[in-house]
């Protein structure tokens, strides 16, 4: 199927997922993810060339409700659980100027 997942791959994936792994977890997860992915290679025994993918149990397309206004959360309710809020908005640390 593909080359065995490496420690560098795991570090890269962790960064994509906004997780920081210490050295011990990098080693642990590299081994565990490799074992899980190796097990998944059993599907190589199947001929999947003409099989379409299924992403969802039912073929749903653009389910929409009537465009009618209904009750929604109040601003206070929506902000009640925020770690930090100011002037009716969620407050976060600096965004601009940092590396992506």
């Amino acid at each position: 199927m593909s080359a065995r997942i490496t420690r560098d791959d795991v570090a890269h994936v962790a960064a994509l997922a906004r997780l920081r792994l210490d050295e011990e977890h990098l080693d642990l997860f590299t081994g565990q993810l490799a074992a899980i992915l190796e097990h998944a290679e059993d599907v190589e025994a199947l001929d999947l060339s003409d099989v379409p993918p299924t992403s969802h149990p039912f073929p749903l397309v653009n389910v929409a409700r009537p465009d009618v206004a209904g009750p929604t959360l109040s601003n206070d309710d929506a902000l009640a659980a925020a770690p930090s809020a100011q002037d009716g908005r969620f407050r976060v640390p600096t965004i601009l100027g940092e590396a992506p």
Partner: peptide
């Protein structure tokens, strides 16, 4: 991380795409 890897560029077809086909079977 397993999911992020299965969806990441270069691995999508090999992992997630194949899994979706198995789902069809």
């Amino acid at each position: 991380m397993l999911g992020t890897y299965a969806l990441s560029a270069g691995y999508y077809d090999a992992f997630y795409g194949k899994a979706q086909k198995v789902r069809t079977l």
